[in-house]
Write a protein that binds this DNA or RNA. Structure first.
Lengths: 153, 153
DNA sequence: ACGCAAACATTGCACAATGCAAGAATGGTC
DNA sequence: GACCATTCTTGCATTGTGCAATGTTTGCGT
């Protein structure tokens, strides 16, 4: 169990490091917003807010900031003029791509370095543990980190 | 590797749930501050700030709020009148105790439920993984969660 | 003893993130 | 057409955050 805690921590640390690249351009909540748009495609404001579990008003202002930075674009829907359609600009897409690519590379490197560890009995044990520990939703998972999930020190 | 991701997620979800009890009284950063005081004992403001990796000014105001809630107490040091000594009030101590106790119980329940999983080869694999993934500092670990590390959905 | 630099806490300022409540615009229904 | 629901936005309040400046105190060197 202690070993699992250690391993979880290491895994999380790696995820946090792969995010560091983006933190000069956007904050973590802003990046999460971008990821929603990258993963789900153009969305309505209300859908983004729901996805991120934030109040729509918070979403509006988050998107204000992202639009100001040139990372998302707002367009009023013609079919339903209440809704605002949000989508990534090329710059926003690129930012997300960079982080996701980096993360994937880190993960691949790690998989390669530890391939021999993942024997069936190990993965069986982890899966059983996950079941015993209970369910956590798929979404939100890797997005839910604070800036302070870092190393140093 | 996928299994480890799952297990990590489950573990984190459990941690987040054990924090939920406190979230009606204090925010997560506030709770982290309380934990520092609980774990390290009475501290100077500057030490708390360093421990939490925040600016001292942020710490001052965080402690303002906690003092207003009656969870910490400030006393000017007599030996060095520059420093302010912070310590938990009984209410603050109790709040931390509640959460930590709950977390410990959850962990014990989980250990018990999964005891047979933790064979030597499993823990060996996890430890090796942690080493390969790189180091993350001991402190900050379980404190570094946002409120959004929840389930539902 | 004096002065000066360092240490510590705080305050001022700016900004991001957040929720609730209210409002404006639009769409759909009866 | 009246009414209600949906969608977004704005106003207001609060927390969390950092940087810069300030005030107080300490310690050191001369």
């Amino acid at each position: 169990m202690q070993a699992l805690i250690l391993a979880s921590r290491a895994f999380v640390g790696m995820t946090a490091r792969s995010l560091a690249a983006a933190e000069e351009e956007v904050t973590l909540p802003q990046f999460r917003t971008l990821v929603v748009l990258a993963v789900r495609g153009p969305q309505r404001g209300v859908d983004i807010a729901e996805e991120l579990r934030i109040n729509p008003s918070t979403g509006t202002r988050m998107l204000d900031r992202l639009a100001r930075k040139g990372l998302v674009r707002r367009t009023r829907s013609a079919s339903d003029r209440r809704v605002v359609r949000l989508r990534l600009t090329p710059a926003g897409q690129e930012l997300v791509d960079q982080v996701l690519t980096r993360r994937r590379e880190e993960l691949e490197r790690l998989v390669e370095a530890t391939a021999e560890l993942w024997r069936p009995e190990v993965t069986r044990a982890l899966t059983a543990f996950a079941e015993a520990a209970g369910e956590v939703s798929e979404r939100d998972w890797w997005l839910g980190w604070t800036e302070h999930q870092d190393d140093e020190g």
